[in-house]
């Protein structure tokens, strides 16, 4: 099947190499929006192999990318007006950094792909430009040993490629640095929001069922009076963990993400308290405080995986301290919830 971003072919040594457009169209844009919402995310791929941008000759640069279409699109868009080659590795549809962490954007696949496309027959030089974040999976000196190609680590962001080339293949400090700006964080929210939907529904179901408990068994009236409110509270806790925490990440006190989530859960709880919606008595109010902050805290802890600055050792330490607290909070909260129903 011919993809829309392929505009034609160029012939090298009798082999046709697809030429790709450097303009993103509406379909590329919509595809990107959908992927951000987790739709079609695992199938948003391009075929691994070699592509041409503009009308490259044997002296043109080779840029290496992943076969996640979002990565590929961001590269070709930033090569507008350039002649070059794009070598797409098979990263199973995963972006450069994550794939490098797993090793699929890695030394072995790069060497393999160079050989499959006969790169030394396409270009006359020995230079490869890799996104810097690919370095987690690629040992440049090994690629040199095996293929003769010199890996040059470019900037972190494709948007800096032109400047990188203009500066004589040098990435300055800013180009090399990974940030985690407000925009970066907001972009991640939709996917995380959709990703946890089953946990959300499960938690809603549990609290809904609990709301029906009374001293005389399940009570239809209790469901009617409290069920909706229980579902709303769980949703707000989810919102605190998945939306409020990432947005205010730098401003929430504490370094543990789980504690940051505890605070954003507390904010939601305080709003409920001030609007007199947190519960009818001390037991119920306390139980909701524990349940809401636990849910928010746990979800915020999972945001460590989306962040760009947490280490494995750090997250392990955080979990060792936080998970027992979360379990304690959750059991106490649910226990109080049941006790309250049976007493009052």
């Amino acid at each position: 099947m011919k993809s829309e971003y392929i505009t034609g072919n160029t012939s090298v040594n009798g082999e046709a190499i697809p030429v790709v457009s450097t303009e993103l169209n509406t379909k590329d844009f919509l595809g990107a929006v959908m992927v951000r919402w987790g739709i079609n995310r695992d199938r948003y791929r391009v075929n691994p192999g070699i592509y041409a941008v503009g009308s490259p000759g044997p002296g043109a640069e080779v840029f290496v990318s992943a076969n996640y279409k979002l990565s590929f699109d961001s590269l070709r868009k930033n090569l507008q007006g350039k002649n070059g080659w794009i070598l797409v590795l098979d990263t199973k549809g995963v972006n450069v950094w994550c794939a490098a962490g797993k090793g699929t954007f890695g030394t072995k696949e790069l060497i393999n792909r160079i050989n499959i496309v006969n790169l030394d027959k396409i270009v006359s030089h020995k230079r490869l430009i890799l996104p810097q974040l690919g370095a987690t999976g690629v040992a440049a000196f090994k690629v040199k040993e095996e293929t003769g190609f010199n890996v040059h680590y470019g900037p972190v962001r494709a948007a800096d490629i032109k400047k990188f080339i203009a500066d004589g293949y040098r990435a300055d400090k800013e180009m090399r640095k990974v940030n985690f700006s407000f925009i970066d964080r907001v972009k991640l929210i939709p996917n995380d929001f959709v990703y946890g939907k089953f946990y959300l529904l499960a938690a809603m179901a549990v609290l809904f069922l609990l709301s029906g408990i009374s001293a005389h068994g399940f009570s239809y009236r209790n469901f009617q009076d409290e069920g909706g409110s229980a579902i709303l509270k769980v949703f707000l806790a989810y919102f605190a963990g998945i939306v409020i925490t990432p947005i205010f990440l730098p401003y929430l006190p504490a370094r543990f993400f789980s504690f940051k989530g505890f605070y954003s859960g507390t904010i939601v709880f305080l709003i409920l308290l001030l609007t007199r919606s947190a519960g009818h008595n001390l037991f119920e109010i306390l139980s909701w405080f524990l349940i809401i902050t636990t849910i928010s805290s746990f979800l915020a802890m999972n945001f460590t995986g989306s962040s760009t600055y947490t280490s494995l050792s750090g997250v392990k330490k955080e979990m060792k301290i936080s998970i027992p607290l979360q379990i304690g909070f959750a059991f106490t909260g649910i226990g109080l919830q049941i006790a309250e129903k049976l007493i009052y």
Partner: peptide, 10 residues
């Protein structure tokens, strides 16, 4: 000791 700093992953 490298790896993913990701609670869900752990």
């Amino acid at each position: 000791n490298s790896g993913v700093g990701c609670a869900a992953g752990i």
